[in-house]
Amino acid sequence: MSTLLKLEGVQVFYGASQALFGVDLDLAEGEVLALMGRNGMGKTTTIHTLCRMLPMRYGKVWFAGQDISGWPSHRAARLGIGLVPEGRRCFPNLSVTENLIAAARPGHWTLARVQDFFPRLAERRDQSARTLSGGEQQMLAIGRALMTNPRLLVLDEATEGLAPTIRREIWAAIGALKGEGYSILLVDKALSEIKPLADRCAILARGEVVWTGPPAALDAEVEARHLGV
């Protein structure tokens, strides 16, 4: 399997305070990688950096064989990084359909296919996004990322704050995408749901990757040291 995404020694600062202290990460084509860690350890910063929404001071980001370190985020997205941002962040005053077609790029995923995948989005097509429930907004955010026909799907806290039944629906959808061979980068705290889905886990602590390995190798000791509350 070839490497799809590679981060090399990425250092990011917010003003004078350093958030990432040299993050190294790679993700192979077709792999599902879970990025884990406690709050404030740099998960979202890492994701925003690889989507080119944050400037780096040192380090490089490679995607699909290209050095995208200096690219603006819209070019990174066009190259195939499909972000489902934390907190969903749909365009609130646009209708569901408008949210989807705004992001559309040619490829397998069309409006009809996304509506098949999430039938609720077809039912709600003319409603403005702000009137949707949290779960529906999450489906819309995933659908919007799929409309860009990405090579890598990046999900930041996809099920945070959702009711258990909705969470199961979202996880089932992510599982279906994995089944189709999608490369996925997951950020989540829900260990029990990540474990069956992820091929590999990486744990961030204080702005560095401190552990990588298969989910099966995540023993109680590692969990307690890096993930426990």
């Binding site: 819209h74 997205a77 365009f91 409309m147």
Partner: peptide
């Protein structure tokens, strides 16, 4: 509505 979000889905 949000230029940064729009850029993140590939809109220039």
């Amino acid at each position: 509505q949000n230029p940064d979000r729009a850029a993140a889905v590939g809109i220039s």
